[in-house]
Amino acid sequence: MIEVEHLTKRYGRTVAVDDLSFSVRPGRVTGFLGPNGAGKSTTMRMILGLDRPTSGTVRIDGKPYRELDRPLTRVGALLDAKWVHPNRSARAHLRWMARTNRLPNRRVDEVLETVGLSGVADRRAGGFSLGMSQRLGIAAALLGDPEILMFDEPVNGLDPEGILWIRQIMQRLASEGRTVLVSSHLLSEMAQTAEELVVIGRGKLIRQCGTAQFVDEASGATIRVRTPQVERLRGALHQEGIEVRDEVVDELPTLVVAGTSSERVGEIAAAQGVVLHELSVQRGSLEQAFLQLTNEAVEYHAHDGATTGNEGTDR
């Protein structure tokens, strides 16, 4: 259990994290979602006691991180896979980490095996590819067999195989009953792995809810209907108390219906004997929806206001 309460971090006049409160519960993957520069990494560093909050508190199972005894056995984290001395071997890197928390050397070999680095354990970490570095970082996070795990943008820059592997390992960890917090700026990635979402923008909390709920709300599914008998159908739908909007799509008059199902619209049309030329569910793309929600919260706007989806938050 991670509890973040009224967390604020200021750098001079810039507010990186602004009165942020949320909690992360065990047994599921919680996605920490927000555009670049939203304060995700800063928040994670404060959770680990690396950065000092300007105000507010973070508690890990009721205690601040700095008061944890043998913290690796409580919280494992991968914030940056490059935080390794390039001339030290993977094994030596894990060995010193294990030693700090009085973990046996046997654990080092075990986690190297888990992430599939046993074969290259004695090679210098500086020569590792990004994928291998990421695996080493995950090995380090797993070292103390902790109940809580945190990963900051773990799939960034990985090839499809690496992405798949990371997703699987996160889901496995959550299914073992652990608390998993993983950050990303990609909603589509989170939709694949996370059950619950903490969405932030400009350091502020936007939503904390289930992923499915967030996706539904955010994408706001609508139904597009085309018919030669526009007036009649509109009247019928109005009678049922259903919201209807007139739009012109591809130079054809179209009704856009929200807040109901396509089945319902079809049934109403049939009852009225209305001919339908099109009846389709329109789902906004996840990225578009995410942008809409975090739009005001994006720190670095592209100055060209005419184009949308140009905020440069992806990849």
Partner: peptide
Amino acid sequence: TTEYRFGTIRTTFQTAPN
């Protein structure tokens, strides 16, 4: 300074917060 250069100081403080 190499610990700061390579970011391992953060790993260090993470493993031993004192």
